[in-house]
Design a protein around this nucleic acid. Sequence first.
DNA 1: GAATGCATGGTTTTT
DNA 2: CCATGCATTC
Length: 766
Amino acid sequence: MVEQASALLAGLNPAQAEAVETTEGPVLVVAGPGSGKTRVLTHRIAYLIEERNVLPDQILAVTFTNKAAREMRARVDRLITGGAATGLVMGTFHSLGVRFLRQNPGAVADRLGLLPNFLIYDDSDQLALVKSAITAAGQDPKQLAPRRALSRISAAKGQLLTPSEAQAEAATHDDEVIARIYGRYQSMLRKANAVDFDDLLALPIRLFDESPGVLARYQERYRYILVDEYQDTNRVQYVLVSALSQKWRNLFVVGDPDQSIYGWRQADIRNILDFERDYPDARRIDLELNYRSTARIVAVADRVIRENSQRLDRKLRTENPEGSPVVLRELSDQNHEATFVVSEIRRLMRGQVSSGNDIAVMYRTTAQSRVLEEAFRTSDIPYRIVGGVRFYDRKEVKDVIAVLRLLHNPADDVSLERLIENHPVGRGIGPKALDAVRAWATERGVPTVDGFVALVPGSAPPLGGDSGPTVSGSARSAGQRLGAALAQLRESRGHLTLAALFDEVVERTGYRSAFDDETEEALQRWANVLELRADLERYDIVDPGEALATYLEQVALVSDVDTMADDGRGQVTLITLHSAKGLEFPVVFIAGVEEGLLPISRAVEAEFHDPLPMEEERRLFYVGITRAERLLYLTYAGSRQVYGRYQPGVASRFLASIPQDALQTLTRSFGGRPTSSRLADRVRGDGGGSGGGWSSPMPESAPPPRPEPLPDFAVGQRVFHAKFGEGRIAEVVDRPDDKELAVEFPRHGKKRLMASFARLDIIGES
DNA sequence: GAATGCATGGTTTTT
DNA sequence: CCATGCATTC
């Protein structure tokens, strides 16, 4: 009897279908860029549910960003009959870690000493804490950079070392000092009832060790586990996944060693390279056929990555048309580079590229975004920046959130200090007064805030009968003012919506009045604060008892890519190469392809004793190249401002791997004397896209390449579009090399789309 | 204890 | 260049 092929396998190539159908046992999918791995993941989940009768809540899928999780869930929902896959657990490792901790409040309190209202400390909180830890350990924060200490601590946590284990393993005096600071840091963190990002991964493992019953429950439940971007997992994530999948062993990991770019975050490429050794019965499936990019782009990417020694030998393939050459352009400095990018984008948008959504500008360091943004701001092209300063990282926003955090978790001393330093209500309270109150509170085992509350006349002392901390004169009245404000806010917390609580906070802490002078700048900053209020309003629908907790968790875990909102105006995306992983755009610019930038100077310096950072830089370049579907531009500047000084720029060594015949080189100096014409260029000013005597970078006659073999679209089919959602094909018109479709979308009306560009998924007939 | 002015040094990438 | 941190002064 021939088994009826599932509709979920239709349109998949044999390797993709195999990855979907091999549901039992460990599977490693080595997926090259653009090889349809998201498709495989979503179809596999849908296949498990539809064809193997697996309940959605028996499936666990781990993604790299929350955005990827959201999109994947939406796609799975579309693929399965009868609506949403409720109960399907999908998220990042970190959000999963929180979930495990939240779901077991009893064991977490007993075994890990964390109360249910624990907070997640972000980067700057951690930095503040580690700084105190350095001082507390008798070191000087100026001698030992807190940043460095933090990254060493993070590395230790990433190997699941406790402070005492780190102490035992210390080989040098330096290691020993760090281990001591780590110990201080960790106990301060626990005292603040807070966790850091590393804890979100390490604490669940400790929880599982201490309470095997808890682990057994999860092992029993998650029969099928899928992990995306497996090449970027670290040791702790590996242990977590191994533990969870032990019972059923249906572990499905997808990754590409050539796209491993988080080595600095302890990502361990061996997790993927050694998978077959860890699971000898594993099936390995290679997805090598690229559907995303033109043959030229694929060839360039392949040549660039082949130079690395730390990789599996494989060759990228595509059946796509050749496409246009990759454009390489030298500009005289970073300003001209930015102007070139903007004017070239304007030119493209007058012609074949209809929307800024189809274009991304990528760069190595966030600092580069400033000049680029400036050029976009003075143009009429809409843009958005992913990365840089997050909304929640703005000072004004953090100041207000600090108060909310303190109300949620009174033990949060980092937020208390922030409140005292930045809000008017904290004026008059200096280090001496704070120390006195903290000592008083510590003695009684209560949070420091309670010490301030205890200063208020008439407040019931929490313990014993004393009259609160001994603080003198002016500091005493200031402390009383703070204590009274906090006591009142605590009262309000329970029965107000978050937006109303916000109003109360900015009023009682005097924060609002700090913006009373009506300078342009004060108004702008106050506008940012109000933006936070609008954000809080969205939580008015959440149960008031839960709203604050939910909000604070969301603030801690959202990344920039997650909030990469599309405002419908067709914005060009400005993004770091790291954040761009997993994304794709018809047109990609990579700016600053220079020595010292890409590869970054640190990798150049390390090269002599450690070649790995340089190989990671190359992979980063590879990731950038492979984001492009149709057009790729590479630019570098002959001179670039660094710390306010101009420094000569030299074309990146990575460019030497690109075959000349794949390139359209629009530069005089590349290959010869790289920077000789620098000064002359600057004086002449070759900012404009068509100025300066350069030939047109892209012939208008270039045929639009087809990124993917077109499915057989037919009138009546139900299709899914990333932006417009579900729709029905009303008309199909044959075009050379393409099809023009008229699709009826319930919410957006009828749209005419080119099949090659719209990337529609067929989700059913009629 | 707070405001002002000067020095210093920092940029890799992020959940 | 800029942000942060420290010393000086009030």
